[in-house]
């Protein structure tokens, strides 16, 4: 139990290798959802939840089934995405039945999550380390996988929330007509990414 290692994994996943701003994963939702702060929060909650479970499933699938059988290299893409898609479907039904309030809050985001690359990326990374070029780990234990996934999910949420508040401000600015909407959002994302580049190498991550 090396707390230091957990901390580094989390820091890398959360900030330094931020899935949205540095790794360019899940950008469609980044630009699509961030038009309002409320939806960003809803999406973030849904993503944190789905990611944690998906990563657990794929980690188990890889370590107990695919790798022992030696078929991982051929089947990891279809099997992981299917696991995620199936889980999201089940979860949607489950939440709808058991927790209508929760369903109301994040229900509409669930179908979108299937094609959220961040979920697949994190789920694959914990199974096959090095997938998104994270230099900290070579093999994840299950707790490490959780820490990693939580970092990714939190990093996704934080970036999404911050971006949404920035866009709320930019929304009412007299941006040149050609830059209105997505172009200025990209410029903003660029400057956010620029601010994060300074953190590269923190604690040797």
């Amino acid at each position: 139990m090396d707390l230091n290692r957990y901390f580094l994994i989390f820091l890398a996943a959360f900030l330094i290798q931020n899935i949205l701003l540095i790794r360019f994963i899940a950008l469609c939702s980044f630009f699509g959802i961030s038009t309002s702060v409320e939806t960003s929060v809803g999406m973030s909650l849904a993503v944190i939840f789905v990611m944690m479970v998906s990563s657990t499933l794929t980690w188990a699938l890889w370590n107990f089934v695919l790798e022992p059988l030696g078929i991982g290299e051929f089947l990891y893409i279809p099997s992981f995405i299917l696991v995620i898609a199936a889980f999201v479907q089940l979860e949607e039904l489950f939440i709808k039945k058991t927790a209508p309030a929760l369903y109301k809050a994040m229900g509409i985001y669930l179908p979108l999550i299937t094609t959220n690359c961040a979920v697949l990326a994190a789920a694959t990374e914990v199974a096959k380390p090095g997938f998104i070029k994270l230099s900290v780990a070579y093999h994840y234990t299950l707790p490490e996988a959780w820490v990693y996934t939580f970092g990714v999910a939190l990093g996704y949420s934080a970036a999404l929330l911050v971006f949404a508040t920035l866009r709320e401000r930019i929304d009412i600015a007299p941006v040149p007509p050609a830059m209105k909407g997505y172009p200025i959002a990209f410029i903003t994302a660029s400057l956010m990414s620029l601010a994060l580049t300074g953190f590269a190498g923190l604690f040797g991550v």
Binding site: L21, I22, F24, P176, A178, M179, Y182, P183, I184, A185, F186, I187, A189, S190, L191, S193, L194, L196, T197
Partner: peptide, 13 residues
């Protein structure tokens, strides 16, 4: 990384 966003934003603009 920032350059990718920047270039894309400017191209769209």
């Amino acid at each position: 990384f920032p350059g990718a966003f920047l270039a894309f934003g400017l191209l769209m603009g």
